[in-house]
Design a protein around this nucleic acid. Structure first.
Lengths: 210, 210
DNA sequence: CCCACCATTGGACTTTGGTCCAATAAGTGC
DNA sequence: GCACTTATTGGACCAAAGTCCAATGGTGGG
């Protein structure tokens, strides 16, 4: 089982279901990891390395139900997509699950094909999510490497302000703004205001302008 | 019934259901507009003025089912949000409906409160959608007012290219680029590259760079 | 044929941005 | 105290962008 094999987490309180799902997952060349309770899963996932994965989750669980697990799970940044499974699902629960971001909701009994298709969809979604996170993560790192003053100057730069306007706003001389600005461009690894603006947009960094 | 009253479209092949829903909707101070077939609704909505509205849609309809109606309806830009209603809904149909953007899926019988809450959610969503469209619409108008050449130059400008680089790419002189560029800024009503980039981002206008 | 629009270019000039080098001062940590 | 970071400023200088002026050639429509 190599490291590049996608992991499929399976949470269900019924051991025979776990075994059965595990078998299907393993036969599809994925790596099944089972949990018989939500708590165990959440504990394990919290410190797991980030890699393509998905979660097969039973809606009915002792203690915390599937929707609650989904909520807790969504709190972590690299949370993997969820495929819900249930024998007696209600429409409202299904609506809730999908609106909260679940890939799909499979009602038992379901085709193996549907399951595998859903797993593949979830994994693909997670791969995209991870690559997205990797990108924005590096941008956030760069923003974090800026000093307060530099961040302040950057906020004004991406608002389209001139150096002299920024200087007036901050109560300093234009020359100083130029220095900060140059350092911003260097640390953010951008060669133009256009690039800088686009980085800030994807990173969610707001521009100034009182 | 004033013009500012939100409209609630209702599509159901059962006339007694239409009457019943109409009454509830009217009592909640909304303006009900009923259709007994999908085709009639799609025809009507295609030329209706854009204003806050939502659609109560039965999953089971003669001819075209609810999911298909949703698909066709989604094709128009200002499409109002959909609240599905059905007496015998399946989990897969529910999943499909929500994944395709439905606000919710109400299984009969349902509380009037749930219905009204869903309608309000849908209307709120549509208001946001309309205001979004109004904004981006005006940006698209400005982009449309540019000549082909100007759009081309803008694509390079927002990529962060220098005038001389743009000139080289287009096989023209830097001076000409300056002229186009000035006209772009004027027509787009922007005073800085930063603003221009942000407009292009929200309008989905892609930057150049081979 | 003339007009309007568009793309193109030139020249002169100002403003702005970016880049060197260099310096001072305050705060932080060892 | 000394090294380090950060914020601040100055001067000189070059490159880039913006702004006036004016002009030419093509194209499509009335």
């Amino acid at each position: 089982m190599s490291d590049t094999t996608p992991t499929v987490f399976i949470v269900d309180d019924n051991h025979s279901v776990l075994r059965s799902l595990s078998r299907v997952v393993r036969q599809a060349a994925y790596k099944p990891v089972t949990f018989s309770s939500a708590d165990h899963f959440l504990d394990a996932i919290a410190h797991a390395p980030v890699q393509p994965a998905c979660l097969l989750l039973d809606l009915h669980l002792p203690g915390m139900n599937g929707l609650e697990v989904q909520k807790h799970h969504a709190a972590i940044p690299a949370a993997c997509p969820i495929v819900f499974i249930s024998g007696n699902a209600t429409i409202p629960a299904t609506v809730q699950a999908i609106k909260n971001g679940a890939v799909t909701f499979l009602a038992k009994p379901f085709d193996h094909d549907d399951l595998l298709k859903s797993i593949e969809e979830a994994l693909e979604k997670h791969r995209a999510q991870i690559s997205e996170l990797t990108q924005t993560g590096s941008i956030h790192d760069r923003i974090a490497s800026l000093t307060e003053r530099e961040r302040e100057v950057m906020a004004w730069v991406i608002s389209g302000s001139l150096n002299k306007q920024i200087a007036a706003q901050l109560g300093i001389v234009e020359k100083t703004v130029k220095v900060h600005r140059a350092r911003v461009m260097e640390k953010m690894q951008t060669a133009s205001v256009a690039e800088l603006v686009k980085l800030c947009v994807v990173a969610g960094f707001e521009s100034a302008k009182a």
